[in-house]
Amino acid sequence: MNRRILAVDDEDIIRLLYKEILENKIIQMYFPRFELTIASQGEEAVKLVKEAYEDENPFALAYVDVRMPPGIDGLETAFQMRKIDKDIEIVLVTGYNDYSSNEIIQKVGTPRKLTFQKKPFTPTELILTSVSLTEKWNYERIKDDFVSIVSHELRSPLTSIIGFLDTLLRNPNMKSDMRQSFIQTIRKECIRLEDIIDKILRFEDLTKEHHKLEVSNIDVENLIPEIANQMQHLFENRNINFYYELCNVKQIKGEENLLREMLINLIENSSKFTKEGYVKLSCKKEDDNIVFVVEDTGCGIKEEEREIIFKKFTKGEQSIQNKRGLGLGLSIVADIVKKHKGKISFESQVNQGTKFIISMPIDITKKIDNDEQ
């Protein structure tokens, strides 16, 4: 998540105030840790925004003092910032009434992503504004990425299907083996489309507050081998050994379709990022919980990507290079675990592999009953 904040003010005491509030260690225990950069003049702030934007590490939020002699004032600073980075959230800070709202908008160029803050401000005002606007920046970035990703993911198989169908229509006398190959490819792309739509609908359903688990008895000794057989095709003709290990838990309670999807998503994820070695699915009993483990010898997860892997519509560097995928798989897994009153964690080393660990109650009905009492 982007928590980068730029604060520009010509007064030493105000710059110090930004630092003492937004970098306060006690406050950071309860609120997100912000990455604060300070500037004393408009020209310096514009340069910092330009450098950050060009480095693809933009600021989410900028606090800009309206009066900043000498040099360009806050309105011109905001205008130049907006020319460089149209997505930056800007808060104009002033203790005066030099301009009307219309005059400010005329000078800055647009009211979009523009907020006003009276000076002096309280620590509470600064913290709440910072949390709110950085969250807004991140949400809008995720939303834009989602539209872009979904458009690409849907268009790609559709383009393939249309292309193969057009070829079939133009060549009614095509050899039967080639025709069969085309039909198989069309079917494969249709299945891929169905999977994309299913993931979007599943995500939508899981995020609804009213979603209620359809709890049943689940035979673990059958579930795991069935999933393993279903996923075996992902590892055919690849230098990867896929296997599973059962435990002494024979039966659990939960929603079988969701638990099946949870494990399938984890195996698919490991398959994407493992070039050689193995992918392993196993389980074990710990007290009143069952622990599912999916581990691999893949590329691992970089330190800077670890806090985003369960976020919706987000992708790590390796996932972006793979191109395919909505960035929903692990988010859906996390939601399923949460619905089952469980916990998910992972251990990972770059270029050595990753282990996902899910712990959940063997009998979720007891947990649900306790929560409702």
Rank of each mutant, 00 (worst) to 15 (best):
R4I: 07
A7N: 13
D12A: 14
E23I: 03
K25F: 04
Q28T: 05
P32N: 08
E35D: 15
E35W: 01
T37P: 00
A39R: 12
A39Q: 11
V46S: 10
V49D: 09
P58L: 04
L61K: 12
A62G: 13
D65Y: 10
G71M: 13
E76Y: 02
A78N: 13
K83M: 08
K83I: 05
V91W: 09
L92W: 05
Y99W: 04
S101M: 12
I104L: 06
V108C: 14
R112Y: 13
F116Q: 10
Q117E: 14
P123G: 06
P123W: 02
V131G: 02
W137I: 05
E140K: 07
I142G: 00
F146R: 11
S148T: 12
I149P: 00
L165E: 07
D166T: 13
T167V: 10
L169G: 02
K175W: 02
Q184S: 15
R187N: 15
D195M: 01
D195C: 00
I197P: 01
K199M: 04
I200Q: 07
F203R: 06
D205N: 04
E209Y: 04
L213S: 06
V215Q: 03
V215T: 01
S216C: 02
Q230G: 01
I240S: 09
I240N: 13
L246T: 15
N248C: 08
V249D: 11
I252Y: 03
N257Y: 05
R260P: 00
L263T: 04
S271W: 02
E276H: 04
K280M: 04
L281D: 00
N289W: 07
V291D: 02
V291Y: 05
E295K: 14
C299K: 12
C299E: 09
G300S: 05
K302H: 10
E303Q: 03
I308Y: 03
I308Q: 07
K315F: 10
E317D: 08
L328Q: 11
D335M: 14
V337L: 14
V337Y: 12
H340I: 07
V350K: 15
F356M: 10
D363S: 09
I364N: 06
I368W: 10
